[in-house]
């Protein structure tokens, strides 16, 4: 008969293994209050917490990684400088996202190039994807690299307001009210810009299809 006896265990080391009860992470409000009181170092946890989200947002609007980093840096520097204007009636993340979207919009406007580029520079995979779409639209995969590159090309050709509204409304699927709050535009302006953006996008696609004789 087996005797099941508890194995002799070494006493648990509680001090190092278990996290200290009570040392909870400070909330955003506490960190903000500390920064406003003069302790700038308390801004770092806020940066660490929100920088992935801000990087993802910036990557929707900038192609080069150096530009993305510049945008994110600009967002956080502005956030630090304007922290006293944060009233706390909405989550800090919303306020920060508003700042990020507006910084991205400023970036788009500053980097608006001549958008008369032709689509003769399409790569072979992109051309193949387009031709496959023309032949069988449903058979074209959504996750193809060529499709992603084509989307990037089309978005790049849009004007700054059109790109912003298409990204927020159609890609991120935000509501008109959310977009109005993020951008500072009125709701009717968002709708007008959305209408124009869709028309602009169709015009670009028509030019693309015409250039490739697809």
């Amino acid at each position: 008969m087996l005797s099941i006896a508890p194995a002799a265990c070494a006493p648990l080391e509680l001090s190092a293994a278990r996290p200290q009860i009570g040392a909870m992470e400070p909330s955003d409000a506490e960190l903000i209050a500390a920064v406003l009181a003069g302790d700038s170092s308390r801004f770092e946890p806020l940066v660490v917490k929100y920088q992935p989200r801000i990087f993802a947002t910036a990557r929707r609007y900038a192609r080069r990684e150096s530009e993305v980093e510049d945008i994110v840096q600009e967002v956080f520097l502005k956030a630090f400088q304007k922290l006293s204007s944060f009233r706390g009636d909405a989550p800090f993340e919303h306020w920060l996202m508003r700042l990020a979207v507006r910084t991205c919009f400023d970036f788009l406007r500053a980097h608006q190039r001549n958008r008369e580029a032709t689509f003769s520079e399409l790569t072979e995979p992109e051309t193949d994807w387009l031709e496959r779409f023309g032949a069988a639209p449903d058979a074209c995969p959504d996750d193809a690299d060529a499709a992603r590159q084509l989307v990037g090309r089309v978005l790049f050709e849009l004007s700054a307001p059109a790109r912003m509204v298409i990204t927020l409304l159609e890609i991120e699927e935000r509501s008109v009210k959310e977009i109005a709050e993020l951008t500072g535009w009125s709701a009717p302006l968002v709708k007008v810009r959305a209408f124009r953006a869709r028309a602009q996008m169709r015009k670009i696609l028509a030019k693309m299809a015409k250039d490739k004789y697809v």
């Binding site: 992935p52 993802a56 074209c140 996750d143 992603r148 989307v151 978005l155 699927e173």
Partner: peptide, 13 residues
């Protein structure tokens, strides 16, 4: 279709 592609491929964080 292109907008669906964009939605299905969010940028890296």
């Amino acid at each position: 279709k292109l907008l669906r592609v964009a939605r299905a491929n969010p940028p890296d964080a």
